[in-house]
Write a protein that binds this DNA or RNA. Structure first.
Lengths: 338, 338
DNA sequence: GCGTGGCGGGAAAGCGCTTTCCAGCGCTGC
DNA sequence: GCAGCGCTGGAAAGCGCTTTCCCGCCACGC
């Protein structure tokens, strides 16, 4: 086993041409190669089953065909949708995506970036949410600098990081619009299941929601914080229930959290939407089919991944670009008139 | 911008040692290096922000730190769970996972494998399902050979491919056990929402299910085939409904299909489980929280990913190993007595 | 005293490519 | 008729690392 790999040199020799010529034929260069030599090379490469050594190419060209993708948790539909968008674009561009997962540990983000830098990835999209953790942020910023310094591009999804391309969803606007829509249903008392307080995404959505309530002259909501996960939503909802809040409508800052919250409500015999309306944010596909279907703010997640990948792969200018994508309020069966 | 990357040579020079010494210090070799030299190298590496060039290392060592992961669709919870398991193990081993998606096109699998081979990935886990498509299969087999030939290891999830390590779920046994459990609920007439007929996974589950019905002396089910997706399940269910079948219980060979099917049933006013019981297969996490919760055969998906990654990374012998994981029938609210 | 080993350090030969530079050659233009 | 040009092919110099080999040094043992 372990028969050595066919090298360019072997192909060249077999075809009776120089290394340079073989290289030019097999990996499009600006230079022309005459038809018959070219044919011969192509044919022997085929016969020998030649596959170029990507590491060697990367080394010689000083650039690789790797694109990094950093997410917190690939099982979270929010991230897997974005991942699908990113991989689609990357694969179309003939690139290969390397997936890094942080498990929501802020320091992992910087570590992964460093690894990606070691691999001379040509670009990376960071889909993890920004935290307000000072230390982790500055370490990350340093890594981002080092990465771009080295010629790589980085784009962030859902977090405005200085100096990088960004696709930012209308978190604040979405939260606000949702609040308005919900107040129009007649609700007067709201609760919010917020994410960890250091997550900027969570804060923005919450801030927008509060602003929306304020627009409608409604009192600020009760806020219960929980982890950005299904279980976080479950626990936050339990806590809310225990607090004897009089809210008739609850906004979970994430669909995934809403899912956990709904489970908690059901478990406690709270009927949705009869006893309590609930809305989320993201519009992850699986929750469109649940009963009741979840009201939410739709974000074009796959498209966001595509945009991010596009930003990071199209060469781009020196200016950091920002693409805003709007969230669209979708009221479904989980919210009722009050 | 694009300040050149710090190289080992620069570190060595700055620290006043030879390239060899620097290399030995920074990338553990069998050779010893005296304490003070070692310190000096470490310190200057730190100061200069040295990060080894992974491509160069791969080239010099003739082995990379890449692990491939091939799935059909990363947004499908089935695959994203497996992916989570694989990445966890890989990252713990200090490796980097490259994610390839086939979009369910059989030929992409071979293409991706070839790309992975170009990158000299040290291993790859194939989570796509095996088809009976002759051409694609033999092309894939050739790529697998080439890959292992070159020293890489490959493991498959859920498909026994000759000569590779495999983790195979008890598809047949699971289907059979499920059939038994459902007949015990009193159902007599069954329908199956099968996957595309060329998918081996789908066929195995179906075959097991039929065997289970047979065990109980029940007539074979009506089978409607559909795509292995939510929409496939939706359409298959619609077709089933249109066929005026008298089935009181339907088995979707995949949870994801069951999800679509439930949506279809609901849309047609069929109450679950009162009018129709439904069960799936896989036990994807999101469907545990739906109403009604889906009866299914639980597969430890993340664990399967971990096992596959483990098989492929632990060196392993020459023998192809097979790890069987059992499915466990979990009856929930979507199935009722009849 | 000198030969033997063992050990830490460095020089240098690759790893498989890309790309620059040069050589040769057939043309064109004056 | 010849300088000059454009074009194709090849030799060879890297790319940044690992690893083999060799050398000098020291501690021993006889």
């Amino acid at each position: 086993m372990s028969a050595r790999q066919v090298t360019l040199a072997e192909v060249a020799k077999q075809a009776g041409v120089s290394l340079a010529t073989a290289s030019r034929v097999l990996n499009g260069s600006t230079r022309q190669v005459s038809g018959d030599l070219s044919d011969r090379v192509l044919r022997t490469a085929e016969e020998l089953g030649y596959v170029p050594n990507a590491s060697a190419q990367a080394l010689a060209r000083n650039s690789s065909s790797l694109v990094g993708l950093v997410v917190h948790d690939i099982t979270d539909p929010y991230f897997s949708c974005i991942a699908a968008g990113v991989t689609r674009v990357a694969e179309e561009a003939g690139l290969v995506v390397v997936l890094g997962t942080t498990g929501r540990r802020p320091e992992r983000e910087a570590e992964l970036l460093s690894t990606l830098r070691a691999h001379r990835a040509r670009a990376v999209v960071l889909a993890g949410s920004r935290t307000t953790d000072r230390a982790a942020q500055s370490r990350l910023a340093a890594e981002i600098d080092a990465f771009t310094e080295q010629g790589g591009r980085v784009a962030c999804v859902s977090q405005a990081k200085l100096g990088t391309d960004t696709v930012v969803p209308g978190n604040r606007a979405g939260g606000r619009a949702l609040a308005r829509a919900l107040t129009e249903l007649g609700h007067k008392k709201f609760a919010v299941l917020g994410g960890p307080s250091e997550l900027v995404v969570a804060r923005d959505r919450l801030a927008g929601f509060k602003a929306g309530l304020n627009d409608a002259g409604i009192a600020p909501p009760v806020v219960v914080n929980g982890a950005f996960t299904r279980d976080g939503g479950y626990e936050a909802a339990m806590e809310l229930l225990a607090s004897k809040s009089r809210a008739t409508c609850v906004f979970a800052v994430t669909d995934v959290m809403a899912m956990g919250a709904m489970a908690a409500l059901r478990e406690r015999g709270v009927r949705i939407p009869d006893d309590m309306s609930i809305a989320g944010f993201d519009d992850i596909p699986t929750l469109r089919d649940t009963v009741p279907a979840l009201s939410t703010v739709r974000l074009p997640l796959e498209e966001m991944g595509e945009i991010a990948a596009g930003l990071v792969l199209d060469g781009g200018g020196d200016e950091a670009r920002t693409v805003r994508v709007a969230g669209e309020v979708v009221l479904r069966a989980s919210t009722a008139h009050n």
